[in-house]
Amino acid sequence: MNVLLCSINTLKRLYDISAVEVGQHFYWQIGGFQVHAQVLITSWVVIAILLVSAILAVRNPQTIPTDSQNFFEYVLEFIRDVSKTQIGEEYGPWVPFIGTMFLFIFVSNWSGALLPWKIIQLPHGELAAPTNDINTTVALALLTSIAYFYAGLSKKGLGYFGKYIQPTPILLPINILEDFTKPLSLSFRLFGNILADELVVVVLVSLVPLVVPIPVMFLGLFTSGIQALIFATLAAAYIGESMEGHH
């Protein structure tokens, strides 16, 4: 029985070390509502990174750009290019939306892969990329939905709803369904990719702590970038689609 208790203690210690926490959250109470504190904390860090780097780089623009300004100009041109390809000539007002979408998701994803969040111990749950949480991705996807409805309505007024019976009224149910599948697919694609990526890395690290997880980590970085680009591109494509005329 002594041996038994000893083994139990060992197992419990192992449990503490190797617990992979999925769906565990660090809750805060705000006015009777619960929030996922780990998501909020990491999202604040991501926002701080974005704002500080933007301020530092764009504070004093030079005609011949310096290194950081050059990088930010490159990023801006990239975002403008994405928006222009998807939305068309009237892309100008949508650059902040598409750009913030891309940058926020990209920095969130990479922060999950590059910043050593796990060093900071939380009472419960653990810090990870903000996009690791379904709340974040659904929030972003719903904003995209609002954005493309706003784009369509401001461009064409109530005539925007005419698209539901285009090209034929038979497609009405499918067209309405599309408005639900778009945010659903956007949010679940991002959520699933980032969560799966982090889990694969965690599992490989717990099995083989050396060398082996490194290629998977690089793959994760690649996937993270691609997912950010896909989200931004699709958001722009939806906006462009609702703005283009059906004649």
């Binding site: 959250h25 509502f33 619960q34 903000p130 379904i134 659904v138 972003l140 719903l142 969560l195």
Partner: peptide, 13 residues
């Protein structure tokens, strides 16, 4: 524990 746990985090984000 829940993966699909929607709460006030969503509007805050």
């Amino acid at each position: 524990a829940a993966l699909f746990d929607f709460n006030l985090t969503l509007p805050i984000i």
